[in-house]
Design a protein around this nucleic acid. Structure first.
Length: 324
DNA sequence: ACCTTATTCTATCGGAT
DNA sequence: ATCCGGTAGAATAAGGT
């Protein structure tokens, strides 16, 4: 919510700045048919309500990518179209305006038809390029937002962006929501960097449900051939330990427990997060810190059922391993 | 895409600390 | 009174056809 408001205000500021320098941008009446010009927030375009003339496409280039995520307002990350791309678009939009003005002697209906035809051609040229760019900007904005919320570092974000770009290049997007795909990319990137977050955690910061995220991830994984190892429960350990506020000692014991479990092979087929949470519960018990199963359930989202069913056999494996 | 199997979850209860 | 452990049935994930 906050970011949305920041975003729009940034956009407006940029818009105002452009009004001062480029005269065609402040047109409120269509130069061709005198219809009203409407600003389309969603598409970032100024269009005539009567004839559909796109007065200014270049606006979109100042869109969602101008965001500051660190709260300081001075570290806006610029991801997306290179500058040359932007200039190119600007030039095009101006060209349309002048050409339309140059056509004079024709009757209105013929002129309009010609104009519409031309606009359609332009639009096609734009949309094939610009809609992709818009997608990327939207997507990267979302990536940043979610990564910040989850505390995922820059390299991880970049990996996510790279994966997303690949997905776009391979035309994996059509028919899928951008949000689901971006979330899936970040999920994959987080796992690849050995700092996984549970799917439910992603669901909490994403605007889509778990199922589409998961579907998108599956799709990505198979189509792009991302070779991502199954998550090692130990990777959840530190994350959970700090959320549960257990001692470093307990965390260390939990690590040993999980190592033992892996040697015994009792971890296969079990949810990594469940194992990590159970190991921490068991370790806390061994180090005489009491955390209840209910607490674990509430803080890391692994049910009491799973804790109960795992922790006992984890302890068995641990004992067996340390005293043979 | 559908079906099968193993795992986890929700809800619930009795017993223990 | 709260925590633990067990149970049944629903939901979900992953693998195979």
């Amino acid at each position: 919510m906050t970011e949305m408001t920041i975003n729009t205000s940034d956009k407006q500021q940029t818009q105002e700045k452009n009004h001062e320098t480029v005269s065609t941008r402040q047109l409120s009446v269509c130069p061709e048919c005198s219809g009203r010009i409407r600003y389309d927030e969603e598409h970032g375009e100024r269009t005539c309500t009567d004839c559909g003339l796109v007065v200014n496409d270049a606006e979109i280039d100042y869109g969602p990518e101008w965001r500051s995520f660190d709260g300081e307002g001075n570290r806006q990350s610029r991801v997306g179209a290179p500058i040359t791309e932007r200039r190119h678009d600007k030039g095009l939009s101006t060209t349309i305006g002048w050409q339309n003005k140059d056509i004079h002697g024709n009757t209105v209906s013929v002129r309009k038809r010609k104009q519409l035809h031309r606009l359609r051609t332009w639009n096609e040229r734009f949309s094939s390029k610009d809609s992709q760019e818009r997608n990327l900007k939207q997507a990267f904005g979302e990536l940043e937002r979610m990564a910040s919320a989850l505390g995922l570092p820059d390299p991880c974000r970049e990996t996510a962006a790279v994966i997303y770009r690949r997905a776009v290049d391979e035309s994996l997007l059509p028919g899928r929501s951008i949000e689901a795909m971006t979330t899936a990319c970040l999920y994959a990137a987080a796992r690849k960097h050995g700092m996984p977050r549970m799917l439910t955690t992603f669901e909490a910061v994403s605007r889509v449900e778990k199922l589409p995220i998961q579907r998108a991830y599956r799709y990505l994984s198979s189509e792009l051939g991302l070779k991502i190892e199954p998550t090692d429960p130990i990777q959840y350990l530190h994350q959970f330990a700090s959320e549960l506020e257990v001692s470093d000692e307990a965390e260390h014991v939990a690590r040993d427990i999980l190592e033992a479990a892996k040697d015994e092979g009792i971890h296969i087929g079990k949810t990594p997060a469940g194992l990590a949470a159970s190991a921490l519960y068991a370790a806390a018990r061994l180090t005489n810190e009491h955390i209840t199963q209910k607490t674990v359930d509430e803080t890391v989202g692994v049910s009491e059922f799973t804790i109960r069913n795992r922790y006992q056999e984890l302890l068995d494996a641990y004992d067996m391993h340390s005293h043979p």
